[in-house]
Design a protein around this nucleic acid. Structure first.
Lengths: 149, 149
DNA sequence: CTTCTAATGCTACAATGTTGCATCAGTAAC
DNA sequence: GTTACTGATGCAACATTGTAGCATTAGAAG
């Protein structure tokens, strides 16, 4: 990925009136480099791998800020922990797939998370979250009868 | 609701080879009586209101069993806690709405949780979970600019 | 370089869910 | 009805995930 992309992590942060800190930059880079939503834990591991000192709480707050600013978005995956991914202009409506066996979550770029128009009166729609559950290609091939836990 | 519905809680349990215990019966009744998915906490409150002694862990395990048996299903709502609802034959595909302001979750009976056919090769779909986020009728009417937190 | 304050990095805590194990109770066999 | 078997419970202790408070650090502006 070129280093001088239009909206670098630095630009992205300053554009939202935030301070450019190593944690925020690293989190954005990690999210950008991944092809699937990351959990707090996974992001923490990325930072550790990049030898970037960080605190658990700081990471939570950095992500909270990114979500508030609309730079990132949360996904309620299959497990208890939140997952995060960068919010893209047009593609922030794709669905996700959660494998009930290996727990992996991945993006289904081709599957739109359609916002149905049939909402009751008075309701305001902000966003739609579509999560498909099942077995991913790897797990599916290993047979259905194995049992997942 | 009539007491002699085709599949009473008792029948539902024995049909799946489980023992009929007050906790399981009460949980099923609570889920059946509610028009929206319930959290552990809410179900616990129902049991307490019905003067049914219960333990937090027992409740978790009762719900776990119900989900395993396909009697109930989990919904990953807006908050961290799981929500549960009875799984209905044909209607187990409706979407849910999460109000980002009051935290309430409710069923959108009219909105189907469509399972897209465009899954990558090798993937097996079990179920689709569609959650719409926004403001419910009550919260929406009270103005958008109030701020949610 | 100094100043201002947003972010950080603790610690401590809250909320949610899980594990182990002794005991209780639902069910079936007698 | 009594007995025996084992699923289900209840308790304690723990694991995971996320928050709150507050003193300190460091980004950005002058």
């Amino acid at each position: 990925m070129p280093a001088h992309v239009p909206s670098s992590a630095r630009e992205l942060i300053t554009a939202h009136g935030g301070r450019v800190t190593r944690t925020r930059v690293a989190v954005i880079e990690a999210l950008r480099a991944s092809d699937h939503p990351l959990s707090h834990d996974e992001i923490g591991a990325e930072l550790a791998a990049a030898a970037i000192p960080h605190d658990r709480v700081t990471l939570y707050r950095a992500l909270e800020w990114l979500v508030e600013q609309g730079i990132a978005q949360r996904i309620a995956g299959g497990e208890r922990a939140w997952r995060f991914e960068l919010r893209r202009e047009d593609a922030h409506r794709h669905a996700h797939f959660h494998c009930d066996r290996c727990g992996q979550i991945l993006c289904l770029e081709d599957v739109p998370a359609t916002a149905s128009p049939a909402l009751p009166a008075g309701f305001e729609l902000d966003r739609a979250e579509l999560v498909l559950h099942g077995a991913c290609a790897d797990c599916g091939r290993r047979g259905v009868a194995e049992g997942s836990r």
